Computed example of a mutant assay.
Amino acid sequence: MRIGTRKSTMALAQTEEIARRLSAAKPDLDVEIVKFETVGDSDQTGKLLTHGGKGGAFVAEIRAAVRAGKLHAAMHSLKDMPGNEDTPGLLIGATLARDPPTDALVLRQGLSIEEFKRSQGKGFKIGTNAVRRAAYARRLFPDIEVIHFRGAADTRVRKLDRREMQRLPGGGEAGPADALIMARSGLQRVGLAGRIACDFSPLEMLPAVGQGIVAVECAAADWQTRQYLSLIDDVSAHLSCDAEREVLWVLNGHCNSPIAGYSVIEGTQMTLTASVLDETGGQFIEASRSGPAERPRELGRAVGLELLQKGAAEIIARTRPAP
């Protein structure tokens, strides 16, 4: 089985975990990892929006190889997969058990969390490329300065410690950053969990849809590959995947929309919470519902429709790029 993935340290770690699990479940299966340098990896300064969002930057090239029959499957971080568009001929054949979905604060070496807490972020420059994280950060710490900051997880931390200025998409520079907001799961994957100064709880910063979930996509008509992938599929993570992505579908969000969504399963019940913010963090709406875990899309649809009733469409429309 040929599995496509990005060349980044984190993507390779995730794909190697998939290969290990497939080999354990099917010892006679030959698994080959095929590395891609996507446009999002080669352009480390531009806004992802210029490449069609995360889908165009990190997903499209590998998906095309699956459609062309060059790959049996593709590894994606679920949060990078667009949820507001059809993917004809493809489906998610497996999801791995969810890693911690929360966001974390990483401070530049020499700075302390006590100093950050005392100042409530005033005078700090926090780097992120995620509009959701930027919106929540401005909501939590109104006096911080958020700067555009891109790169693979380990690269970002190196840039932070070296106090590198960041080139801005429209020209000029910003920085250096004093701190970064990053996914805890990504830091763990690249061996940098020790750099986490503090975690943001879901109440403080609701995770991105699918954050912490590794997805394996394959051709819908490739029944053999689907059978193999079913051997490593985590049912709870797949249910959460379906519920949270249904919210994106209902909202028709885009890569510049600060949309968050996170589900928790307890027994046979699932609780799903989702939110929409404007980019300043000033306008904020949230919806939360519970229902049978075995009907995740119905729950996601109900939460998405409630957000629309509360005015989500207007917020999303203001963040949509001009044609």
Rank of each mutant, 00 (worst) to 15 (best):
E32R: 15
A179W: 01
G4L: 05
S201M: 06
D30Y: 06
L277P: 03
S201G: 12
A220G: 08
E279T: 11
R6F: 02
Q44M: 08
S77F: 14
M75Q: 12
G191H: 06
E114M: 11
E298K: 06
D103F: 14
R132D: 04
A73V: 03
G46T: 10
G40M: 02
E115C: 03
E61L: 09
F149V: 01
Q269S: 08
N252T: 08
K47S: 14
Q269P: 04
L277Y: 04
I265H: 03
L299S: 00
R133T: 06
P207A: 02
D233K: 15
D233C: 15
R184P: 00
N84E: 10
I232R: 02
T225R: 07
P88F: 11
E37L: 13
T5M: 00
E115D: 14
K35V: 15
V216M: 05
V131M: 11
V146T: 12
G127V: 00
M270N: 00
A13V: 08
E61P: 08
M165L: 15
K117D: 14
P296G: 02
R6G: 15
A19F: 00
R2N: 13
R156E: 02
A302T: 01
H76V: 13
R289D: 08
A317L: 15
R289V: 03
G210Q: 01
A287M: 04
